[in-house]
């Protein structure tokens, strides 16, 4: 069996609004292996959520459009599949955990019903008792007493709601879990619990996970590999050790790592990355980071940089290419 679960190849996604076309993803490529935990890091607006929604083909209708590229899931091209195929995939083989647990549960349905709905949709042949038993079991696994399944979302705290969302995402034992900032809306102690829970359940079901976050700490804690996303592209990809413990980094990654305050030194100031993220309405000629990059040359502004690999560690930058900058 092929080891690759998901292959995204030169994916381009645009949002067409009344004023302008927003280029959300530009030649985005990513490979996810079975059981792999990959972190997608980048600042707000880099295109991380867009990627997750593209995989599920849930981009906002009429506005979001995949213009070119390919998304292969178990070697099947998803972009050619009819909607009915995607219905069977969503929630069953690929599920998603959303950023804000406060708003991602339906306020007028009991949490048990909302988890049960996944089974009703994807396992219509199971008997009522079997389904209920499964719901009870997943509630137990995520650490919520099963008798609370008759309650409504507003009766739970944020962390518990996120546990319910995780229960919903995992009850069908999907092969791929898209976790879109699952801990951002939670406070730090709850964050750690939720990450721990996701780790446990990931081991149990051996699902691959794409963890979308802007928190490097969460990535270092949870993931095997990291893809740094900037301006709708992967600018650096590699194992966690290669990214964090390496002097060879993309200038943007370096900037991100420098943003983390160091507990041991007494630096008076943090080191933010200068400038702002480029306007996504403009297609960039050269490197998308050139305007903010301290090492930028003339070439960076005119020629798109190549992905330079050293083993599995890839950096999208002229600085590391053979010809040099």
């Amino acid at each position: 069996m092929n080891d690759d679960l998901l292959q995204i190849e030169k994916l381009n996604v645009e949002y067409i609004t009344d004023d302008a076309i927003v280029y959300a993803l530009n030649d985005f490529s990513l490979n996810v292996k079975r059981g792999e935990k990959i972190g997608l890091v980048g600042e707000t607006g880099a295109g991380k959520t867009t990627l997750a929604l593209s995989i599920l083909r849930l981009l906002p209708k009429k506005i979001g459009k995949i213009t070119s590229g390919s998304i292969k899931y178990e070697s099947e091209e998803l972009l050619d599949k009819p909607e009915s195929y995607m219905l069977g995939l969503r929630g069953r083989r690929i599920s998603m955990i959303f950023q804000d647990p406060m708003t991602s549960l339906n306020p007028v349905k009991t949490v048990g019903d909302q988890v049960l709905e996944v089974l009703n949709l994807h396992f219509p042949d199971l008997s009522k008792e079997e389904k209920n038993a499964k719901v009870d079991e997943i509630f137990r696994l995520v650490g919520i007493p099963a008798e609370r399944k008759f309650e409504y979302p507003h009766q739970f705290s944020g962390g518990m709601k996120q546990r319910i969302v995780i229960a919903m995402a995992l009850i069908a034992e999907p092969e791929l879990l898209l976790a879109d900032e699952p801990t951002t809306a939670l406070d730090v102690t709850i964050q750690a619990q939720i990450l721990e829970l996701m780790k446990e359940l990931k081991e149990k079901y051996n699902s691959a996970v794409i963890l979308i976050t802007h928190d490097l700490g969460v990535v270092a804690e949870f993931c095997d590999s990291v893809a740094v996303v900037y301006g709708g592209r992967v600018v650096e990809i590699g194992k966690v050790e290669e990214i964090f413990g390496n002097s060879h980094n993309h200038p943007y990654t370096k900037g991100l790592i420098n943003c983390i305050p160091d507990l041991t030194s007494t630096a008076p100031r943090l080191h933010p990355i200068a400038g702002r993220m480029g306007d996504p309405r403009i297609k960039v000629q050269g490197c998308c980071f050139a305007d903010r990059c301290p090492n930028a040359t003339e070439k960076c502004k005119t020629t798109p940089p190549p992905m330079v690999y050293e083993g599995e560690h890839g950096i999208l930058c002229h600085l590391y290419s053979k010809e040099g900058a």
Binding site: L87, R90, G91, T103, V108, E117, V165
Partner: peptide
């Protein structure tokens, strides 16, 4: 709303999203 997106991500088709999730909330 986010929960409508959640319902779609579960694999519910548009009809189910509408009848099971959207209408009751919109009637309040």
């Amino acid at each position: 709303m986010d929960y409508i997106r959640t319902a779609r991500a579960k694999g519910a088709d548009e009809k189910k999203v509408l009848y099971h999730h959207a209408i009751r909330n919109s009637l309040i």
